[in-house]
Design a protein around this nucleic acid. Structure first.
Lengths: 329, 329
DNA sequence: CTGAAAGCGCTTACAG
DNA sequence: CTGAAAGCGCTTACAG
């Protein structure tokens, strides 16, 4: 029993008015003079019939939806993405926009725009700057995060700064021989390149040798072999910048197997500030990236473009990061 | 320069055919006899003009979209949700369905259906069984996960089994006095109730006293106070079922501060099998829930309803769980 | 103050 | 084999 759809025509009939009046009332269209009485009748009729406008019809008529489409890269979704998403949704929702989230799945940005006609697109590391530029020609704002630290998008997560912050901290702690514990996740490539660059930079600035880069799988025994490679040398490594907290924890586990302890033998610093970073022993020193704020900033950028009259101030275009010092350094 | 939209009319004109022919060719409508030559001309014209059909117009015409709408509850999205989402998307995508993800945000399921006209809805703990039943009257399949273990949805994650599995394991390890380390996250309420029930059950079955339930915040010092309460009694607790791995880690941290060690003094078992569970020391014994498979099963349920001709076999309607024994028990 | 009409872009009987 | 026409449900000039 799938009763036919209730349309604005039905509401009009029931309220004894025309379809236009229904539209005016339900959308609070400005510049219309409609008696409070009529308004009430229309609203009542809509409620009684359980009327919900068709998003498709509205979109077809308007030429676009009220949807902010969030497109993420075809990589595993992590906490960072979830946090960004949450901040964005929270920011635009109160202004009547719906956020919808999809993976890129190899699609072309222009095709996505034409097919789904979103009111704005938030690009979470999914499209190349070229694609974004091409799409910007249409009047759909594309805001985005350049996870790799390259410009051309709106928000920048300064991967190099993250690496630099890790290294500077270790150097300030007196560590002269640093290493970078890399992830074996191929999809992290570009992201990681920026971070390593930052570490290299800091070393160079302080006249230290370039960091040793070792892949560190997320298993204690494999991590132990990585640690061994860092230590069995004329100038043993005394400070490790890990790609993220997971890798940092793997390094800790490997050190434990090798009979080393942090920070006495080797200091370790991660990235992400996972909830567990403070619960493990030794508690992890790590770089906290304010991803939620990135989402909020994206939302504000969207609102600035879509609703200039709101007077939303220009958000900072770089993500805030800060170091949380705990026991491993 | 936002050039006007390219429509199927434009393609028709360019190819020298009618709009219907364009539609037939581009949709491979069966039962039409169209010369290969014409087909080629149409496809070429579409490509040259960069034609993408309007999703809105299609949806309006068809009465529904090709979208599987995933609605999640208004709670923080965790790894479990992300895993379910991934499995679902992977399963339905090859059959031409798009998955779109939204938070419930207090909306009514019927309103969501009417407005967005999705081809199916995946309800991840967002709607009550009543709402789902009411919506099932329409011919839109609603598949779902009942995170709380209550029936009425399609997939069941057996929270009570999870608790039972934790407790049985501790009891098999000779622990006679158990406790439940609860989360302080109010949103986990229902979910947790089922798990505690399972623990209580197992205790009762073995003639053991009911588990002590203590809230365990995710900070070492607070967790320490929780541990103290478990130990400072005539019959000190020797086994702890933790709500999840985060809480289990907090318990570990609290024990460390209290000078206790696992499993010698107290055995601890978590839930989730986070990647870190095997990296911490002592490595965490935990219950692994196959969330990705839950997503796949949801996708298969959708396909069974939408594409009976595919002959997709009926998926198991209960999530698989298994115990991963490590060092804390 | 309110209504009739057009049109957004598609698909699909139906007529040739 | 191909085309003209209707209609999905809205919104918005325009006419009264």
């Amino acid at each position: 029993m799938s009763s036919a759809r209730v349309t604005s025509r039905d509401v009009a009939r029931r309220a004894g008015v025309s379809q236009s009046t229904v539209s005016y009332v339900l959308n609070d269209t400005p510049g219309q003079t409609i008696s409070p009485d009529t308004r009430a009748r229309v609203r009542d009729a809509a409620t009684e019939l359980g009327y919900t406008p068709s998003a498709a019809a509205r979109a077809l008529r308007a030429g676009r939806t009220d949807t902010v489409l969030v497109v993420v890269a075809d990589v595993p979704v992590g906490d960072a993405t979830v946090a960004i998403l949450g901040g964005l949704a929270r920011t635009v929702q109160p202004h009547g926009y719906t956020t919808v989230y999809q993976r890129r799945d190899g699609r072309d940005l222009r095709a996505v725009l034409r097919s789904l006609t979103p009111v704005a697109v938030a690009d979470i590391g999914a499209f190349s700057p070229d694609e974004v530029a091409a799409a910007a020609e249409r009047d759909v704002p594309v805001v985005g995060v350049s996870l790799d630290g390259i410009d051309g998008h709106v928000m920048r997560i300064p991967q190099d700064e993250i690496g630099r912050m890790q290294a500077e901290h270790l150097i300030a702690r007196g560590r002269r021989r640093l290493a970078y514990a890399a992830t074996d996740d191929a999809l992290a490539g570009q992201l990681m390149a920026g971070r390593i660059e930052g570490v290299r930079d800091a070393c160079a600035r302080h006249g230290l040798p370039a960091p040793l880069v070792v892949e560190t799988p997320l298993y204690a025994d494999a991590a132990r072999r990585a640690v061994d490679r860092l230590r069995d040398r004329a100038d043993p490594v005394t400070g490790v910048c890990a790609f993220n907290d997971h890798v940092a924890l793997a390094v800790s586990a490997g050190m434990r197997l090798a009979g080393l302890s942090a920070p006495a033998d080797v200091a370790v610093v991660g990235v992400d500030d996972l909830p567990l970073a403070r619960l493990v022993s030794p508690a992890l020193t790590t770089v906290h990236v304010h991803n939620d704020d990135v989402g909020v900033a994206l939302g504000r950028h969207v609102l600035r473009r879509l609703r200039p009259e709101l007077g939303v101030p220009e958000p900072d275009d770089e993500a805030t990061i800060h170091l949380v010092v705990r026991e491993t350094t």
